[in-house]
């Protein structure tokens, strides 16, 4: 079930633009039309089809999530590994910088950055990635610190392998499993965070549809058209639940300790 939702989200995001959607087409006679067999998921306050807009929202959340997680993963893992490998003052400095970033409640810095940079999808990616890298950096630093002492790494060093080679061939492969699990939960987090920023009006600009912005607009019509709040919220929740469940399954599958039990 979670895999099914995840696949549906991915497929809609990747191939949604081939469906001939009319997410911004205004049909004045259908304003606030509730969901039904003829009208699909209904129409919003401007007479735009909610279903089509949901699919566009899926695309936005999908691409923002992957971009943010990819950037955070790359940046965080590099910083974490370098910090652990070289140690000394560099490590101390990096740990301190991470402590400072961690002093900001997770979404707060993203809100402030997005607010200062102005709305727009690139700014959302930047704001979220500037928080996202820390999780990966901490994880890879902690893992690399212990891996550094493993005999296979010491052997590689004794054979005269250079730092990049050791990090790439001897440390990174062993980091992969926990990083993938972290990235999965990261995707769920970014989907919520992107929707939060859009909800606050700091994300994607109208008329482009985004789940958070649809929810925000919908709250003005809750009395007469609750479907405007229910539809994007459902989509958001199911994607997040699905990704979180996948993360749990992945963790169990990749964790050798739980398999042996």
């Amino acid at each position: 079930m979670p895999a099914l939702i995840f696949v549906l989200w991915t497929v809609l995001a990747l191939f949604g633009s081939h469906l001939g959607l009319q997410p911004n087409e205004v049909q004045l006679d259908k304003i606030l039309q509730p969901p039904s067999w003829q009208h699909g998921l209904g129409y919003d306050d401007l007479g735009r089809p909610v279903g089509d807009r949901l699919i566009v929202g899926a695309q936005i959340s999908f691409f923002v999530a992957w971009q943010v997680v990819a950037v955070s993963l790359l940046l965080g893992t590099t910083i974490g590994c370098v910090s652990a490998w070289y140690g000394g003052w560099l490590d101390k400095l990096i740990v301190h910088v991470m402590d400072i970033f961690l002093a900001f409640p997770s979404i707060l810095l993203a809100i402030a950055l997005a607010g200062v940079l102005g709305p727009g999808i690139e700014n959302v990616v930047f704001a979220l990635a500037s928080m996202g890298w820390i999780g990966f950096a901490r994880l890879s630093r902690a893992q690399a610190l212990s891996l550094k002492q493993h005999t296979h790494v010491l052997a590689a060093r004794a054979l005269g392998a250079g730092t990049p080679r050791i990090l790439w061939h001897h440390i990174l492969p062993l980091l992969l499993a926990p990083l993938i699990v972290e990235a999965t939960f990261g995707i769920a987090g970014v989907v919520i965070a992107e929707a939060s920023l859009s909800f606050l009006g700091l994300g994607v600009q109208p008329p482009t549809a985004s789940w958070g912005a649809m929810l925000k607009d919908g709250t003005h019509y809750m009395l007469i058209a609750p479907h405007l709040v229910l539809a994007p919220g459902m989509a958001l929740m199911w994607v997040v639940v699905a990704v979180n469940l996948l993360g749990d399954q992945l963790r169990d599958a990749l964790d050798i300790k739980t398999q042996q039990r």
């Binding site: 929707a195 909800f199 919908g218 929740m237 639940v241």
Partner: peptide, 15 residues
């Protein structure tokens, strides 16, 4: 608990 963690508060509030 999983549902509670996955429902964003800007949806739970309106609900």
């Amino acid at each position: 608990s999983l549902l509670g963690m996955s429902i964003p508060n800007f949806w739970l509030g309106p609900l």
